[in-house]
Design a protein around this nucleic acid. Sequence first.
DNA 1: CACCATTAAATCGTGCACAATGTATAAATT
DNA 2: AATTTATACATTGTGCACGATTTAATGGTG
Lengths: 147, 147
Amino acid sequence: MEIPVNNDNIKLDNHLCFYIYVTSRAIQRMYMPRLKQLGLTYPQYLVLVALYDKQKLTVNELGRLLDLEYGTLSPMLKRMTDRGLISKVRSTEDERIVELTLLSEGKLKRQQALQLPQLLASNSGLTDEEWQQMVHLTEKMFKNISE
Amino acid sequence: MEIPVNNDNIKLDNHLCFYIYVTSRAIQRMYMPRLKQLGLTYPQYLVLVALYDKQKLTVNELGRLLDLEYGTLSPMLKRMTDRGLISKVRSTEDERIVELTLLSEGKLKRQQALQLPQLLASNSGLTDEEWQQMVHLTEKMFKNISE
DNA sequence: CACCATTAAATCGTGCACAATGTATAAATT
DNA sequence: AATTTATACATTGTGCACGATTTAATGGTG
């Protein structure tokens, strides 16, 4: 039983999944020094960005936004609550729901991280047009493969 | 002390790092069912791809290729050796160096995974031209930010 | 030869990330 | 009212991923 294949599938260099994978990790490594100063991990940074943008989210909404499971979010949000970055308040109407907001400490840290995207933009070596292309392509791809 | 900022930095949607991050994880999730059948994790799959492509690599060379540290590779390569996928042989000339090759079991699994890139290509919803752009852009970006 | 810096690889600790499982509440059905 | 079903969230276990430390082998240099 033959599997239809062209030679492009053999070379590591032709694996788009590979470049996306290593690029994602390279970005995290690049952000790490500044995030470390702020006492944040990369996913925690994204939580702050999301909450700063949306003001208020349930755990469920945050999970859909960042495409993360409860098993990942729960311990992370607990750590962030313990550090006074965010508040977790159980809804009075529906006690299953936990509502998340930024505390002032979390707002401050999010503001102190504002230059990170610019750091990436300048280090990436991409032109403005290429940057916009890449935002467009990754957004399109993500939306298609995550249904 | 004001930090120079434009509003693009506020919205989560404008974070390229965010889209790359979620896209990378979405690809891994998409590959997971088939990789699970093969008893492989995603990084292990990339190790097989790299070794199938290059025939023979030292741990150091593999780490530079996949941009992974010894602390990540060592336990993973041990697991793959235990399962008979790869062979780890210490070089006779320089005993610090460990040389890696694919065993037939590993070759087979790599061949059985050949359709994965095509799965991504068709699910991504990108045109051939967009796909090539994306390979080009991610490669350029990765090489610039990883020095 | 001895000394020191370098390098290859392994080990350890912390934090995601996900699957699988468990628990509790809410809504729908009987 | 009682039972089922679905949903929200927590817990557990495995496997990366990285930084930091450790061990061991190599390669100069005096």
